[in-house]
């Protein structure tokens, strides 16, 4: 019995990380209706950027964020204003196919530069330390820290959306882009900032992946799918829905893995499809139509 509880608890911790993947995807979809197929590859890119930063400066992975976060922020802004803004319009094809192309380019560039070898960001003794919650349930310190930071970030995002000037501009643009322009909101700039914020979350997620598990250039697509599933399960109503989506996915995967190691990801996908059939708008949908 206690092993099952343990699986669920571990799944919750993993779910926090998935929610981080998902939050970045949810923001850009919310603000500009863009589904970024390169999202997962950008997470892996961020992990590699962190790796290079750590190797050249010798800093701790957590400290590397000082460099990686601003880099990814800038990268996101330029990517949006330089390329993706030109794909947005009534036609669904250009944004999908362009981000799809970018995904393949990033993947293969990483493969060419860093080879297909698995990498890891070394965080020191913290990697192996853990706290015992009750007998049979041991929480790794690192997964716990990642989870707490993920929840804190989701909380901060939710506050940011509801209380700040930028958050209002994001919501107004999401509601009605053309009227938002009449408020003096520069749409191109707002889209750039949305992608920049999304990639900051991606950067944090990438570094967390790097210290929690191994990563390699081919990891992106599955992370995109996890992010996507968490967003849909959560239902786009709020960042809390996204967190719930990530946790449900993480728990489903861990229960699957408990039944049979081959069932880990399969169980997650099946949970997603079942929820999609039963609740097409997710568990916590937006209250208004759009």
């Amino acid at each position: 019995m206690i092993e099952w509880v343990n699986s669920i608890v571990q799944g919750v911790l993993t779910g926090g990380l998935y929610a981080l993947f998902a939050a970045g995807l949810a923001i850009i979809f919310g603000v500009m209706r863009l589904v970024n197929i390169a999202h997962g590859d950008l997470i892996v890119l961020a992990a590699f950027v962190a790796m290079v930063t750590i190797e050249t400066t010798g800093v701790d992975p957590f400290v590397s964020m000082v460099a990686v976060l601003p880099f990814m922020f800038f990268f996101g802004y330029v990517l949006q204003r330089g390329i993706l803004n030109y794909t947005l319009g009534d036609d669904l094809l250009p944004p999908l196919l362009v981000t799809f192309g970018i995904s393949i380019v990033i993947q293969n560039l990483l493969l060419e530069i860093f080879s297909a070898d698995s990498q890891r960001l070394k965080a020191g003794p913290i990697e192996v330390s853990s706290v015992e919650l009750v007998e049979g349930i041991e929480l790794g310190t690192l997964p716990l820290i990642v989870f707490v930071i993920a929840v804190a970030l989701i909380f901060a995002l939710q506050i940011g959306f509801s209380r700040t000037r930028l958050g209002r501009a994001f919501r107004a643009t999401s509601d009605d882009p053309s009227t938002a322009r009449l408020m003096g909101i520069n749409q191109k700039h707002i889209f750039g900032l949305a992608m920049a914020v999304s990639l900051v979350l991606v950067a944090i997620a990438g570094i967390f992946i790097g210290i929690r598990t191994n990563f390699d250039p081919a990891l992106g697509p599955t992370r995109l799918l996890f992010a996507f599933e968490a967003v849909i399960i959560g239902g786009l109503g709020s960042m809390w829905g996204t967190l719930a989506g990530g946790v449900i996915l993480g728990v489903a995967q861990n229960i699957g893995a408990k039944i049979d190691p081959g069932w880990q990801f399969l169980a997650g996908h099946i949970a997603f499809l079942v929820i999609l059939v039963l609740r097409p708008n997710g568990l916590f949908p937006r209250t208004r139509d759009d």
Binding site: I83, Y86, T87, L93, P94, L97, V98, F100, G101, I102, S103, I104, V105, N108
Partner: peptide, 9 residues
Amino acid sequence: GVTAVAVML
């Protein structure tokens, strides 16, 4: 990939 992106744009 680069060609496809350029063509799409």
